[in-house]
Amino acid sequence: MKFVLLLAGLLISYSTMALPPLSFSQVAPGVYLHTAAHHWPDRDNHGEIANIGFIVGERCVAVIDSGGSPQQGAALRNTIKQVTAKPVCYVINTHVHPDHIYGNIAFKEPGVQFVGHHKLARAMATRGDHYLGRAAELLDIQVNQDNIIPPDIEVKDNLTLNLGNRELLLTAHPSAHTDNDLSVYDKTTDTMWLADLLFLEHIPVIDGSIKGWLSEMERLEKNHYKLVVSGHGHLVKDWPASLQPQKAYLTGLATEVRAMIKQGKTLEQAVNSVGLPAKKNWQLYEQFHRKNVTIAFAELEWED
């Protein structure tokens, strides 16, 4: 069931910015998804570029990523209140990137526990100052250390959260998109929330390990899921077919970079020549591809 909830006129104590409409789809019973457009994070979109959502159980609600700004987090919070009277009990952050965590502050209240990968707190501590320093300039949002909320519950391998007759299986993945990726599987609807372990149309972004990401994709594609939620892109109903473009891009990138290293080519040469045909297949190619080559080269030049 599709619906748009208009959140105009809400008073948000930490912002005077008018809240825009926040569209949500109920993609499965009790599973609500806001699908974002593919944009470079900037002052126009305020970093609100990632898919976010929530899952409703009989007892309470779990938020899965809170959005790219405090304002979007507040819009999400008020959307939940219009959907259900059940309280939010968990805010699950799938990884450290600002477009997934800057809405956390909207849920900081008694009874709400924040959940993340066991390496998430370290990543927040390491990157927090850098992220905060660029937020006002790049995103036109005001954030401070209060917006960087580390997990109360850390996931080292697997963890099951019960929302009341509804179990979510959380998995802490080895280094892939980042070194703190967390997936969420809703057993009730056979929905896997992969977040940024899966990119569709938007070029995949490496901020962890290309080898690890390839390994995780090989493992994940062997599983069956009725629905898969990506971090950037449409809802997936044909898993694992929808994974194949990302797999092909990352596999090709690794193959080409390894060949360049074997030939004694430099990083600069690799950045200028690897993966050029892929440009036609991906949005935001210019913004992220060169960085992907750089990170892949730095990792693969040291492999045995």
Score class of each variant (00 low, 15 high):
246 Q>S: 10
4 V>M: 11
248 A>F: 10
142 Q>D: 14
141 I>F: 03
8 A>L: 12
267 L>H: 00
94 T>E: 05
73 G>A: 07
8 A>R: 15
173 H>D: 01
48 E>T: 11
170 L>V: 02
31 V>I: 00
236 V>M: 03
214 L>G: 07
166 R>I: 04
263 Q>R: 14
291 K>N: 11
251 T>E: 13
183 S>N: 05
58 E>Y: 03
241 A>G: 09
302 W>V: 09
100 H>C: 12
114 F>A: 06
13 S>M: 11
59 R>W: 00
163 L>K: 03
227 L>D: 05
169 L>M: 11
204 P>V: 01
81 K>Q: 15
245 P>A: 12
219 R>P: 02
183 S>L: 06
239 W>N: 12
39 H>T: 08
40 W>H: 05
303 E>R: 10
91 V>M: 04
118 H>K: 13
226 K>L: 08
120 L>H: 04
7 L>R: 14
27 V>T: 09
62 A>E: 02
126 T>W: 09
222 K>T: 04
62 A>N: 00
248 A>C: 09
290 R>N: 12
218 E>C: 10
113 Q>F: 02
23 S>F: 07
41 P>H: 11
104 N>F: 08
164 G>Q: 07
140 D>K: 13
201 E>P: 07
120 L>G: 05
115 V>N: 01
107 F>A: 11
46 H>T: 09
257 V>D: 01
128 G>H: 06
124 M>V: 12
223 N>T: 10
212 G>Q: 06
228 V>I: 06
255 T>D: 01
37 A>S: 14
208 G>S: 07
209 S>G: 09
33 L>W: 00
191 T>Q: 07
295 I>M: 13
107 F>P: 08
128 G>M: 08
118 H>E: 08
143 V>A: 14
151 P>K: 10
145 Q>H: 14
151 P>F: 01
43 R>E: 05
255 T>P: 03
207 D>C: 09
274 V>S: 07
23 S>Q: 14
60 C>V: 01
301 E>C: 13
7 L>S: 12
84 T>V: 02
249 Y>I: 07
300 L>Y: 05
69 S>P: 03
221 E>S: 15
271 V>M: 14
155 V>A: 05
2 K>Q: 12
185 Y>N: 06
286 E>D: 15
82 Q>G: 10
250 L>C: 13
100 H>L: 15
268 E>S: 14
119 K>V: 07
104 N>M: 12
281 N>K: 14
164 G>D: 08
274 V>F: 01
159 L>W: 00
64 I>C: 06
72 Q>F: 03
137 E>T: 13
86 K>L: 15
155 V>T: 01
181 D>Y: 06
238 D>R: 14
22 L>E: 02
156 K>R: 15
157 D>F: 07
101 I>F: 04
75 A>M: 15
46 H>F: 05
